[in-house]
Write a protein that binds this DNA or RNA. Structure first.
Length: 171
DNA sequence: CGAGTTTGACCAGCGC
DNA sequence: GCGCTGGTCAAACTCG
């Protein structure tokens, strides 16, 4: 296994190891990543108990099969990086531009999960945003993929977040 | 008018 | 095999 820093605090953000007062009062309480997110289910609600070998990071070959979706090519997925923030708002203004492409009610959670995709041409980074039932103040954001372009409108705050992410998620 | 959101339907994977 | 659930699509809609 790797040295995954992760998992939801079973009860609120108790141990905010990397605390940071961001604007609009939010704080990162946990950062964790799972490469090779093959278990596409049971993530946010349970745990990212995951390890496996690194396999993702293939270029986002736009496998747009004629017709409908093409979730993942087999089991290989891009690495995912998830972290929690304590925030009033669901959407972190991380400087990138996102387009919402779906929303689903998830089990064991009264809040829906929102799906976003980076609108930058050629950039297939996705993220999921979900609020915890246990602690409505906590928002879990899961990034999938890596941006292939610079931040469009840099915000000091998020640069800081990113720098923190690199600590826990060395690509 | 373009960019982004909403929402219902569709599909695939997984557990039973 | 069936049903449940998560993830995605796309048309319609809203907003700046």
């Amino acid at each position: 296994m790797e040295k995954y820093q992760m998992f939801f605090p079973s009860s609120s953000a108790g141990q905010s190891s990397n605390y940071d007062p961001f604007s609009r009062n939010m704080e990162i309480s946990n950062v964790f990543h799972n490469s090779h997110g093959e278990c596409s289910r049971a993530e946010a609600n349970k745990q990212f108990s995951h390890s496996g070998s690194f396999a993702g990071d293939d270029d986002q070959s736009g496998v747009k099969a004629p017709g409908k979706k093409k979730v993942a090519e087999k089991k290989i997925r891009k690495p995912r990086y998830a972290f929690q923030t304590r925030s009033q708002v669901d959407i972190l203004d991380d400087g990138y531009r996102w387009r919402k492409y779906g929303q689903k009610a998830v089990k064991n959670n009264k809040f829906p999960r929102s799906y976003y995709r980076c609108t930058y041409q050629g950039c297939n980074v996705k993220k999921q945003v979900q609020r915890l039932t246990k602690d409505e103040g906590i928002v879990v954001t899961t990034y999938e993929g890596v941006h292939t372009h610079p931040i469009e409108k840099p915000t000091d705050n998020f640069e800081h977040i990113l720098s923190q992410m690199h600590i826990y998620a060395p690509f």
